[in-house]
């Protein structure tokens, strides 16, 4: 279960597998604190209200010159 900023090893194993990472339990335990740290950051990012013109474009130098 995801609980606050923590996640059970079983749930984390499932997420990792779904993401294409086939890791041992030891490797998962090692990676889990980093993942838990980013959970709050991802929630904050996801909750930001952006405008209709805030598109997911990549910066292209010659068309993004600020004048």
């Amino acid at each position: 279960m995801i609980n606050g900023d923590t996640i059970s090893l079983e749930d984390f194993k499932s997420i990792a597998k779904h993401s294409g990472l086939h890791l041992t339990d030891v490797e998962l335990e090692s990676l889990r604190p980093l993942y838990e740290h980013t959970m709050e950051e991802r929630t904050i990012l996801g909750n930001i209200e952006l405008g209709a013109t805030d598109l997911a474009t990549i910066f292209i130098p010659d068309t993004n010159v600020i004048s």
């Binding site: 294409g20 990472l21 980013t38 990012l45 996801g46 930001i48 952006l50 598109l55 474009t57 910066f59």
Partner: peptide, 16 residues
């Protein structure tokens, strides 16, 4: 690998 497509797209939107 553990970020979602939504995380990436929202981050690019915030960048804009």
């Amino acid at each position: 690998a553990l970020y979602s497509a939504s995380d990436y797209i929202q981050s690019q939107r915030l960048r804009k």
